[in-house]
Simulated scan of single mutants.
Amino acid sequence: MRVRHAAIAIPVAAIAVVAAFTALLPAAPATAAPVALAEGLTLTEHRLDGPAHVQVLTADLATPGLEAVYLNPGTISSTARLSEQATRAGAVAAVNGDFFDLGHTDAPHGTGIRDGVLLHARAKGWNDTAVIGTDHRGRIERVRLDATITLPAGTFPASNLNSGNVAPGGIGVYTPEWGEADLGETVTGAEGVRAVRLRDGAVVETAADAKGTRPGTDTVLIGREAGATTLAALAVGDPVTVAVAPPAGTTAISGNAVILRDGETVAPDGYSPDPRTAVGFSADGARMWLATVDGRSDASVGLTYIDLAGFLAGLGADDALSLDGGGSSTMVARLPGADGFSVRNHPSMGYEREIPNGIGFRTTDNQER
Rank of each mutant, 00 (worst) to 15 (best):
68 A>I: 07
198 L>N: 01
174 Y>P: 01
61 L>W: 07
199 R>L: 03
101 D>L: 10
199 R>Y: 04
23 A>K: 03
241 T>H: 13
293 V>C: 10
319 D>E: 15
335 L>G: 00
357 N>D: 14
166 V>D: 04
61 L>P: 06
220 V>K: 06
110 G>M: 03
2 R>D: 05
206 T>G: 12
97 G>T: 03
24 L>Q: 08
308 L>W: 01
322 S>R: 03
246 P>H: 03
283 A>K: 13
145 L>D: 07
104 H>T: 04
331 M>Q: 09
306 I>R: 12
97 G>R: 03
49 D>Q: 09
336 P>S: 01
165 N>R: 14
187 V>S: 12
319 D>H: 15
94 A>F: 10
52 A>W: 02
76 I>S: 05
156 F>C: 00
285 G>R: 10
288 M>R: 12
211 K>D: 15
341 F>T: 03
138 G>Q: 13
327 G>V: 02
270 G>E: 09
150 T>P: 04
229 T>G: 15
125 G>N: 04
83 S>I: 00
104 H>D: 01
127 N>R: 06
39 E>I: 00
169 G>N: 06
15 I>Y: 11
62 A>G: 13
178 W>A: 09
86 A>C: 01
350 G>K: 07
317 A>I: 05
278 A>C: 04
349 M>W: 03
335 L>T: 00
304 T>E: 02
346 H>D: 13
160 N>D: 15
259 I>H: 10
363 T>Y: 08
